[in-house]
Design a protein around this nucleic acid. Sequence first.
DNA 1: CTGACCCGAC
Length: 303
Amino acid sequence: PSTIFTYGILMNCCCRTRRPELGLAFFGRVLRMGLRTNVVVATTVLQCLCGAKRTDEAVDILLHRMSELGCVPDDFSYNIVLKSLCDDSRSQRALDLLRMWENERGVCSPNVYTYNTVIHGFFKEGEVSKACNLFHEMAQKGVPPNVVTYSLTIDALCKARAMDKAQLFLRQMIHKGVRPNNVTYNVMIHGYCTLGQWKEAGKMFREMTRQGLIPDIVTWTSFMASLCKHGRTKEAAEFFDSMTAKGHKPDLVMYHVLLHGYATEGCFADMINLFNSMATKGTRSVSRCMDLFNSNICTLQNG
DNA sequence: CTGACCCGAC
């Protein structure tokens, strides 16, 4: 009953559970069985290669081998490989590939995911002007920046301690009708907290809730991290306690932040207590991954 | 069956 679709699902699963080589092994079976590959499965192969840190092979397949397999790369194919190049700190190479894609004039062209990926890559590498050029270019080419584009730009400005410019961008996006989301406000709040500008952070927090947005675990964690960095771990701990008392489940990052705070201030007894409560409460991220894997295995067997 | 952004870390 195995069709190319079931292999696609299985390979995707291997990728998500961090077993890209296994996914590639399944693709080997697809080839041996003589099943006809479609563009989604070919793109999943790219994803597996990228996950296995074999980006150059992914580029080669994207540019040369996909047509041999009888399919045309689509926007997903390009975006996945571009992301991998950017993750490897080769954003300029990603931009070159983006240019090649534009010149192909095929069925699809770079979209908002594409630009966001490469802009983010440039910001991460400190290539601010290249990132800004792309920001302007996308709008000119009829791809308006969305909430992600603005959020990652605002994040870069905040990390460069340019809070005034970040604030300007926030106003600009609202003016252009792009609604800020939790991420947008989280990076602003984190920016102000990092600089110890608690008052401004509070303003952002109130603006966020006024917009009907609900602060999430990232909001709280970054707030706690800033408290710890300013030698106020005790307040961070009180915050943590009130959160858990309200039934909010801390995640691994939140524990790490508080543990690191305790460690910095030499509160070793508190560290041990927290460590023990961490072990009993546990985190479910790993088991969730396994659930995903199992349900997809079932799909395969039923197919 | 597929893609982009925020919190830690040494």
